[in-house]
Amino acid sequence: MSRILASLVAAIMAFGIAFPAAAAIPAEAWDLYRQKFVMADGRVVDDVNGEISHSESQGYGLLLAYLAGDRTTFARILAFTRTEMLIRDDGLSAWRWDPKASPHVTDINNASDGDLLIAYALASAGAGWNMPNYTAAARQLARSLTKVALLKRNGEIWLMPGAHGFSEKDRPDGPVVNPSYWIFEALPVMARLTGDQSWMQVKATGLRLLDRVAKTAKPPAEWLSVKGEPKPAEGFPAQFSYNAIRIPLYLLRAGLTEPARFGPIRAAWSNGTATIDLGSGKPVDPLPDPGYRILAASIACALDGTPVPAELKTFQPTAYYPSTLHLLSLAMLAERYPRCM
């Protein structure tokens, strides 16, 4: 007990994050998720995307395992992530792993949100479980990300989506960013790990970007060209879609509850969660899965105190992605907004 307390104190001192004394994700919910999406070898499977894995799924798996207090599964997922995906020259993770391909890594480019999730989960586990090697690994990843993924430009510091393909050099409308790659809760952790305050500027840049987009009264597009005034990037559908729907979750998880930022998203979801065409403002695909609906319910509860419907408080796994968002939302409500549970 004293050891756990000591770890907690160390964690709070080191990272300024509140670590739950009890697991933020109930054991039954985590078991259901784990049994469905985590393979014996530690691979986290995106079941509706051709059973592939990516650095994002591995990162989410690590973070959820940590939030569930499951060291065993954390070690399992990490073993796979490390041997199979953390193989890039720069130390970052290859973003795509396909069980049907040989070699399995079919795109060696990285995805910065996947790297950020892995580093954040490692840092959390390193501090929370007193595992210095996890912390050391988190620090190495954070340093790599600092070097590879941060772009200083016109007084802003952007988080680039990947090492290749999004810069001014790579695209006429570059730089192109993905606002849902700003996992706000992880950014101060990166700053502390690396001692580089650029990460706090990344956070500020991300928030300014969301504020500028919110002023247009439209939800943010998945991919934004920030070459000039932010606008949907060429070659991507101008939609508020599966990437961007995570933005309110990340804001709330980081305790960033400035209501104006949520306004256009809440308006777009006034008739239910859906992907939104930004030209017409109309829904494209309805998102009825509880893992999506709890996103809107969380906003309503966190900002207005509207109770979260009881059916969303229990977890049944559906597909990998909404199930992941569902558990992250439940953990957030339990940790930050306990009145909502």
Binding site: L78, G91, N130, Y134, A137, Q140
Partner: peptide
């Protein structure tokens, strides 16, 4: 080099 190898090899090792 800025980016040394990730050392998780002894992840279960007791802290230094």
């Amino acid at each position: 080099a800025l980016q040394p190898a990730i050392d998780l090899a002894q992840a279960q090792r007791p802290p230094a």
